[in-house]
Design a protein around this nucleic acid. Structure first.
Length: 218
DNA sequence: GCGTGATCATGG
DNA sequence: CCATGATCACGC
């Protein structure tokens, strides 16, 4: 079982509020899934569970999850204090693009324009099926937030295009950061070298810092 | 191999 | 202690 795609943002929001505070076990049962006891081998489970529960459509395409609504779905683990406990992956970093940088047209911005956040309480003292959702948040960046995201993105993407991959680490960026995104550290893809040539390098992703997602949900 | 969904695990 | 760097599963 799997929910049909919501036709409107209002319908999606109704569904999201209707499942607030529910346990992962109950949600999973409703879509014929079983919550693993250990996420070490199923890290994406909660995201995939909520996709089914809410009727997301994009699959593994590089599009917002609710493509027709332009809305991205993000689950967000909270610690016991209600603070985000992990950074949030947004999208792959395009390492070979040489087009002029355009924030308005980049994949990252397309996904962050409107996000349905589904926070939940991550609690290692009980089995994940007992974890409960918190209240959903339907969010778009404020002008101030967008300005900083855009600055971060330009700073990071400039280094990518200038062939300065060696100068990129997770410490750069106020709200946004670039970190490895691969099965393991041996995975290689193509990137731009310091003389503009193609080099072998590790795939990377854009992530939102927990300090930023904390702002969003409060 | 790439992009989707993320959390794990250890070094500073 | 916790952010950074590393890792896991799946569809195609």
């Amino acid at each position: 079982m799997k929910a049909s795609p919501p036709q409107t943002e209002a319908e999606l929001w109704m569904r999201a509020t209707a499942i607030a505070q529910q346990s992962l076990g109950d949600l999973a049962a409703a879509v014929s899934m079983t919550v693993p006891n250990d996420f070490r081998r199923e890290k994406g489970f909660i995201g995939q569970l909520l996709e089914r529960v809410l009727g997301a459509t994009a699959g593994n395409l590089s599009k917002p999850d609710f493509t027709h609504l332009g809305i991205e779905l993000k689950t967000l683990p909270l610690n016991a204090n209600g603070q985000p406990k992990e950074s949030t992956y947004v999208s792959i970093v395009p390492l070979m693009g040489r087009e002029p940088l355009s924030w308005q047209h980049c994949e990252l911005y397309q996904k962050l324009r409107r996000v349905l956040w589904i926070p939940y309480f991550f609690d290692k003292t009980v089995e994940p099926r007992y974890w409960r959702l918190s209240d959903p948040v339907l969010w778009s960046p404020t002008a101030e937030e967008e300005a900083i995201l855009r600055e971060d993105w330009y700073e990071l993407m400039s280094r990518v295009q200038m062939g300065r991959l060696d100068q990129i680490n997770a410490r750069l960026g106020q709200y946004l950061q670039i970190r490895p995104k691969a099965m393991n550290a041996d995975v290689r893809t193509q990137g731009i070298g310091s003389n503009g040539e193609c080099v072998r390098t590790s795939p990377r992703g854009f992530y939102l810092r927990t300090s930023f997602t904390a702002r969003i949900i409060f």
